[in-house]
């Protein structure tokens, strides 16, 4: 846990506060005192919240779960960048050593029409689930457990699919996108499954359904800004969007 050395940093935070989905929100200023460089960003916020609770204030609501960069729950735009400025790092893995004494930090929730704000820094990302529900799976097999090596997957294909499967579903790509599009998220799933023999059978149906779901759930259109890849904590490549476009073209002629 964090240790309280007296040489910690003092920071000024501007945090988005909003009581509920239909309430107006605004930035409010807080001070984070004596912050250790070894703390994570979320631990820093935990301490701010402890102070708020002690003084009868309202703690800042934010999403988090694993705190080890794998669940995709943490979701904050820090100084204008989803997950903060460190490449390939989730908020929970961002450490305070990236900041210095006296810094001013702006903390805002994901902002996109598809992600309504629930409270403070928490947004509703159900819209992403809707995209995955529309085809981000292979239909279940029944019968006995298949032999592990019954389906041959070439190593390059396995690697490619694993790269796409790294997506943790955090939605930073949407938060970063000037068009509020979820094309990177969608493409990662489409590409992962289209690359593998198990996914190929349903590839055409999948890409069409997932693209439709993207459109129906309030996301914008991809116009190739590539802002998503730069913000993605897993470095998911826009090459998967090119793959989605190829899969879509194939599906058009089916």
């Amino acid at each position: 846990m964090s240790h309280h050395d007296s040489h910690g940093m003092n920071l000024v935070l501007h945090v988005w506060r909003q009581k509920g989905p239909n309430e107006p929100g605004k930035l409010e200023q807080y001070e984070a005192k004596n912050v250790s460089p070894d703390q994570s960003f979320l631990e820093m916020l935990d301490e701010v919240n402890e102070q708020l609770i002690k003084t009868g204030g309202d703690p800042i609501a934010f999403d988090h779960d694993c705190r080890e960069g794998i669940c995709g729950m943490c979701s904050q735009v820090i100084n204008g960048v989803p997950h903060g400025g460190q490449e390939r790092t989730t908020v929970c893995q961002l450490h305070m050593r990236n900041f210095k004494d006296g810094d001013t930090i702006y903390i805002e929730p994901w902002k996109a029409k598809a992600f309504p704000i629930q409270r403070d820094l928490i947004v509703d990302r159900t819209a992403l689930d809707k995209i995955s529900q529309a085809g981000g799976y292979t239909s279940a097999h029944t019968g006995g457990v298949a032999d592990g090596n019954a389906i041959l997957v070439p190593k390059p294909s396995a690697d490619y699919a694993m790269d796409a499967a790294e997506c943790i579903g955090c939605g930073a790509c949407v938060a970063a996108c000037p068009n509020g599009s979820a094309m990177l998220y969608t493409s990662a799933k489409v590409a992962q499954l289209a690359e593998l023999p198990q996914g190929q059978a349903e590839a055409a149906k999948r890409v069409c359904n997932m693209v439709d779901a993207l459109q129906e759930n309030g996301f914008g259109n991809c116009s190739n800004h590539y802002e998503c890849q730069a913000a993605c904590p897993k470095g998911i490549s826009v090459k998967f969007i090119a793959r989605l476009n190829r899969e879509y073209q194939k599906a058009l002629f089916k």
Partner: peptide, 22 residues
């Protein structure tokens, strides 16, 4: 549609890759 999908309400937003042309 894209303008509607992005409320564009960040107090601070840093462009990482998008540029004037895009």
């Amino acid at each position: 549609e894209n303008k509607a999908a992005n409320p564009g309400a960040y107090a601070v937003k840093k462009q990482l890759k998008a540029n004037f042309a895009s």
